[in-house]
Simulated assay, not measured.
Amino acid sequence: MLRRLRRVPSVLLPLVLLGTLAACGNDTGSDASSGPLSAVSISGDPGKAPEVSWKQQMETTGIQSTVLHQGDGPAVKDGDSIYANFWIGDGYTKKKAYSTYDTGQPQLIKVDSSSLSPVFKEAVEGHTIGSRVAVTAPADKAFGPTGNPNLEIGNKDAVLIIVDLLSTVLDGPQGAQKPAPAWAPKLETKGDAVTGLDFSKAPKPDGKLHSAVLIEGTGATVAKGQTITVNYLGQVYGGKKPFDESYSKGQPTSFGIGTGQVIPGWDETLVGQHVGSRVLLAIPPKDGYGKQGQPSAGIKGDDTLYFVVDILGAH
């Protein structure tokens, strides 16, 4: 991944998401006024950071989930990709341990039975988009026998996880096909994946920033400051192969848009597009990597960059 194409979040929680954890039975749909959740008061609107007030230390022996707010979106299934925010608290110290709300960017989560932790899977699978779900569990069942030292959660502590299910992410572009402009190279594809660009009949770049919608999605409009999820391929004009792409990796990438996390040509052209769209970009040096280029990727200071971008989600 090229520098300034994506900024990787500085804090990740692999021990929350990985499926190497042991899971005992669960008690779904428990009453928030009884059981472990009786130790806290949770308020606030879904989509915003929850307000958690501790009444007493939390105790729990198993994994329990409670729907605090029922969303009206589709139910999340195994194999889906979703945006979610989550809040983690330590029921022994009665303190917040981590919150994605603090970073301002939701997490992209693949709901995969083979890799997602049972605790987190309990919080998302089967619940509807728009829901807020609370899950309680002993730390050794949530994180393993040592608890989570990185979050200062002991192995005997009770853990509270609050998850807001925000939106789903598409598997590929969805919408009406649009004719390619005269400046466009030919796309080489395999199924929904773009494998390369053929410049044999494309005119020389004119030094201007261009964008064209090849598939017009019908999803939400991308707004400045959102996190978007995309598949993409980049190739310099006349290049024989891509200098970077995500299609073959089996996992799209996410980043903030319109805020300088990516090259200027992306910020300027992708804001205002619709989720589900496939967009073709021609980006001159001044809107890409400048006169210095990106030597590590074989990009010279006078190269025009061409990108295909499939916008799969935005939140």
Rank of each mutant, 00 (worst) to 15 (best):
P46E: 08
H210C: 09
V76F: 02
S167R: 01
T93M: 13
D198R: 11
E122Q: 15
P203W: 05
I82E: 00
N85M: 08
A23L: 12
V159I: 15
G191F: 05
K156A: 13
T229I: 07
K94P: 07
I283K: 00
P264G: 07
G191R: 00
F255L: 07
L312I: 14
T227V: 15
E216I: 11
T28H: 04
K208A: 07
L21G: 05
R278T: 03
F307L: 14
A202H: 01
G19Y: 00
S254K: 02
K55Q: 11
N148P: 08
K141M: 13
A314N: 03
P179L: 12
V52P: 12
P145Y: 12
F86P: 02
H274K: 14
Q226L: 12
I161S: 06
G154A: 15
S41E: 08
G298Y: 10
S10I: 12
Y92S: 11
I283A: 02
E51L: 14
P295Q: 00
G288N: 03
Y237Q: 07
V67N: 02
G91T: 08
R7Y: 04
T20C: 05
E122S: 14
G219Q: 00
R6A: 07
R3M: 11
K156E: 12
F86E: 03
L160R: 01
I162R: 00
Y92P: 02
P185C: 08
P50C: 06
G196I: 01
Y83P: 01
E59L: 13
I42R: 00
K204G: 09
A176W: 12
G225H: 11
N155Q: 10
A139P: 01
C24T: 12
D244Y: 11
Q107G: 14
S99Q: 15
V119I: 11
T229C: 04
L170R: 02
K224C: 04
A97G: 15
V76M: 05
S10C: 05
G44F: 02
L68H: 02
G225T: 11
L13G: 07
V230A: 02
V16Y: 02
E268L: 10
K110M: 09
